[in-house]
Computed example of a mutant assay.
Amino acid sequence: MKQAESMITVDSLVKRYGNFTAVNGVTFQVQKGEVFGLLGPNGAGKTTTLEMLVGLRKPEEGTAFIGSFNIRKELQKVKEVIGVQLQSTTLFELLTVEEILQMYGSFYPKHLPIAELIDDMILTEKRKSRIKSLSGGQKQRLAIALALVHDPWVIFLDEPTTGLDPQARRTLWDIVLKLKKRGKTIVLTTHYMDEAHVLCDRIAIMDRGELIALDTPETLVRNLHAASAISFSVSSEVDLNEWAKVEGVTKADCKEKEVVLYSDDLQLTLTSLIQTASERQIALEDLQTRTATLEDVFIHMTGRSLREE
């Protein structure tokens, strides 16, 4: 490997489409056995970054290594050691679960036992079912099984739970955590902050083609310097500087008429906030308090919600 501890080394990747730079000099490393999250709203560049790593797009500048293999010079070797589940996977819907896994397995010199793979993906009862009859969650689990059939070193999952119901999402989470226990290196993109917090050892936040933060979920939240968030709406124009002067506030953000104040002393800040609003005769609407989250980190850093279109 290029570096003993790293399974993936990304160095200054750039991808352009005409005058538009989709990915602008992204650099990071992923450790062996790590679940690494790429987060960002649509257009942030996370999917393009993933597609360059798996050989679907060619970078204009920079390069990356999967293990010891250079994605620009040894792409065939890279493809032998990675498994990929894309946002949309087109499957042969008249084949059964068992048949399509056997077909994919035949593409490789060796593959995992198909029966075990079906059991691992919780598809045992569907092994003889045609793909067209599967639910959304079952199709996603099958897509992951297809990515795993050749026992890859690294698994890329591009928004694996988008569109799934809560139970199906949790089932996918369990599968990802099981793969991590087996020592697989996993890179996933997601629109869900709770998913990233549960699954990822480290998270890279992308916005407008650039990497703007990289750390563990806990450290990213801690760097807000606030244990609590207080959100409310006002009917008047927001003067963020004035709200930031409320006692105990460490950071203040706003989006249109909604204000979010971050504080390490919730009681002090609430008391001061209500007093300030009363003195100015401002009605606080939809007042809520909660523990600060990764979503707060993202909004603070980018000024927009993760799931914003």
Rank of each mutant, 00 (worst) to 15 (best):
A227M: 00
I212S: 04
T216P: 12
Y192Q: 12
I186F: 04
T189D: 00
T185C: 09
V221E: 13
S233D: 15
A196I: 02
E210L: 01
G209R: 10
P217K: 08
I212M: 07
A204D: 03
A213V: 06
T190Y: 09
T185W: 06
S235F: 01
I212E: 02
L179S: 08
I203R: 00
V234L: 04
I203E: 04
D207S: 13
L224G: 09
I230H: 09
L214K: 02
L214D: 05
V221T: 11
R202I: 02
S235M: 07
L211V: 04
S233N: 15
S228Y: 15
I230N: 11
L188P: 08
G183L: 03
H191F: 10
D201W: 07
H191L: 07
S233K: 15
M206F: 09
K181D: 13
V187Q: 03
T185S: 13
S235C: 05
H197Y: 13
G209A: 06
L179Q: 14
R182S: 12
D194W: 11
L224F: 11
A196S: 10
I186W: 03
V198M: 12
H191R: 07
D207C: 02
K181T: 09
M206E: 01
L214R: 00
E210I: 00
E210C: 02
T189Q: 00
S228R: 14
K178W: 09
I230V: 14
A227Q: 14
K178D: 14
D215I: 02
M193L: 15
V234G: 08
V187R: 00
V221Q: 10
S231H: 10
H197N: 14
R202N: 05
R182A: 10
V198N: 11
V234P: 14
K181N: 13
T190G: 11
T189E: 00
K178R: 14
V198H: 08
L220P: 06
L211F: 06
S235H: 11
R182F: 01
K184N: 14
I203F: 02
L224Y: 09
